[in-house]
Design a protein around this nucleic acid. Structure first.
Lengths: 144, 144
DNA sequence: TTCCTTGCAAAACTTTTGCATTAAA
DNA sequence: TTTAATGCAAAAGTTTTGCAAGGAA
């Protein structure tokens, strides 16, 4: 019987280098979490990371997973995404990009910057300046 | 001494008509909540609605506020907004529009559709169709 | 009367925190 | 050795739910 392929993990040394260059002390747990997140561009909740850790035979406490994700986010190693009010997602793709959000499945898909082009954008309110543009294109199963 | 002006309330009959046309039974509590929400285009959390209710001398249980907001959202009378992972906001402006999000204050400001114009948008993934485009323009206090 | 809604308290969740223990440099 | 991170359990916060009591048609 076909077996669920184990999700591939990023090379630990590469994760360590990445953490050090963000001035983050590379503890065992942080590296393990980084190996999961940085293996590919993806969107994971804290709970999903815990699942993948335990699937990989590693035990990391829930508190540490949250601490680590918040630390990574504060240092720009991941980006927080709020599409589902029930849980926060962390996006390991730190290049600028947008998202498709499938309303039926909850799935997020990246949209590269060149796929969207503005011909007009409003000026920020007085006293403020642009900090970023976030776009979520909601899609649903095609009626048919 | 200047007094905090009581936020104005929408006319009850107008709220009742609105609920009926969405096939929602206009109970006392639903009308009271509608009077707050529909008084002007605004973005309110469940907690803020409870505050305004009690400021107006009305008592509605927390459970009913949540039930009502979810009902209104399901019927398209308000739109749910997820910018703050800690709480869900409900937007009583149901016309299509976008938002400025002030990162320093958390404040949301409407951006009308004509203020943004696309010259290119990606095709939805195979098997899906467009359901909506959500844009949040993040702004911060101007450095100076 | 019949069906639906409300209110309360408790439950369910996600996320944060305090503190003793352990690991990193 | 000194400083910082981990793990646990408890706490905090928002949202949901079960059920008895009350309101709408």
């Amino acid at each position: 019987m076909p077996q669920e392929p184990a999700p591939k993990l990023e090379d630990p040394d590469s994760v360590i280098a990445r953490l050090r260059s963000s001035e983050i002390i590379p503890t065992t747990q942080r590296v393990e979490i980084g190996q999961i997140l940085f293996a590919s561009p993806q969107h994971l909740s804290a709970e999903q990371i815990l699942e993948r850790l335990s699937a990989a035979g590693r035990r990391v406490s829930k508190a540490t997973v949250y601490n680590t994700l918040n630390l990574f986010a504060a240092r720009g190693l991941v980006r927080q995404i709020n599409v589902d009010p029930a849980r926060t997602c962390f996006d390991s793709n730190t290049r600028m990009h947008y998202h498709f959000h499938n309303l039926d499945t909850g799935e997020l898909t990246d949209v590269d910057v060149p796929a969207i082009e503005f011909s007009r954008l409003p000026n920020p309110p007085a006293g403020t300046e642009l900090a970023g543009v976030e776009i979520v294109i909601r899609v649903k199963r095609k009626a048919g």
